[in-house]
């Protein structure tokens, strides 16, 4: 039983995390001022576009 509760909690957490990520991507897609590449998280673009923001702000 305790395994099921923890599992459900973890799945809910994952759902929240991915949902939040998705929300930001869509938000960036809608807002022309936002830089989409920061939400990509891949090895290419976050290096080139996002780190300065992350480290500086």
């Amino acid at each position: 039983m305790w395994q099921t509760i923890i599992t459900v909690l973890i799945v809910a957490l994952a759902l929240f995390f991915i949902g939040k990520k998705l929300y930001y991507i869509v938000k960036q897609a809608v807002d022309p001022k936002q830089d989409i590449s920061c939400s990509c998280g891949c090895s290419g673009c976050s290096v080139s576009n996002c780190n300065s923001r992350e480290t500086n702000k």
Binding site: S37, C40, C42, S43, G44, C45, S48, N49
Partner: peptide, 14 residues
Amino acid sequence: SGGIAGGCAVPGVM
């Protein structure tokens, strides 16, 4: 975008 390998299409598109 990864023409040689290991890039990403997002900065490629940009």
